[in-house]
């Protein structure tokens, strides 16, 4: 029974992955990616790795893909135009991919490979996936965990360095400059000679028109 479920999810996963790169509409591609994440999570669930399955859905589907969909919908880009060359190279790339896949299958299913069939784990009741993972990450895998954090820091610095620009029409004012303003900076007294009163005939012409 579990085998049947595995093959169903795996088949849908492969189909969704293929559609991600072949779908013409980028929104459809993103939704297929969501589908493939769900199937991946289901496969993890079969292996009783429930924490990984749930975090995959929460992090990728809930946060990353939703943001991604927003970006795709906001941008007014003709994706079909961008990938004009894509369909031209599909036959060659497809042949190479099929040859490689067949080779890999032949090697891995060869008698000399001696790969035993996967054994599904069966944890006792009350086994806590998140606890085991947490214990490993915070003790044995302390170094890679810290370095992964540095990796995120680099990602943040890079994103800011590449996208942050000073806006030209900003209305920002510096309070320090405002306080230090003197009367002489703002008001200019110009001495002008006294002038005669203009004649009263000019407004009369305006009245006639109105």
């Amino acid at each position: 029974m579990i085998e049947v479920i595995f093959y169903v999810f795996a088949a849908v996963l492969l189909f969704a992955g293929l559609r991600v790169i072949t779908a013409k509409n980028p929104v459809h591609a993103a939704l297929y990616l969501v589908l493939s994440f769900f199937n991946g999570a289901a496969l993890w669930m079969l292996m009783q790795a429930e924490f990984l399955a749930v975090s995959l859905i929460v992090v990728y589907v809930g946060a990353v893909m939703v943001l991604f969909l927003f970006v795709v919908m906001m941008l007014d880009i003709n994706f079909e135009e961008l990938r004009k060359g894509f369909w031209k190279y599909v036959p060659v790339a497809g042949v190479v991919a099929v040859v490689m896949a067949v080779e890999m299958v032949l090697i891995l299913t060869h008698r000399a490979a001696q790969i035993e069939g996967a054994q599904l784990v069966n944890h006792p009741a009350g086994y806590n996936n998140a606890k085991v993972l947490g214990q490993l990450i915070y003790t044995e895998y302390f170094l890679p965990f810290q370095l992964a954090a540095v990796l995120l820091l680099v990602g943040m610095i890079a994103a800011i360095a590449l996208t942050l620009r000073k806006r030209k029409n900003t209305k920002y004012i510096n309070p320090a400059d405002q306080i230090q303003v003197k009367r002489n900076d703002r008001v200019k007294i110009v001495s002008m000679p006294a002038e005669e009163r203009p004649s009263v005939e000019a407004p009369k012409a305006d009245d006639g028109q109105a």
Partner: peptide, 25 residues
């Protein structure tokens, strides 16, 4: 001397380099 750490180190280098190449945006 662990494959996970080796990989994370490589990614740390690569990610910084990608950003540095694009720094002249």
């Amino acid at each position: 001397v662990n494959f996970v750490v080796l990989y994370v180190g490589l990614e740390l280098l690569s990610l910084s380099l990608y950003a540095l190449v694009a720094l002249q945006r």
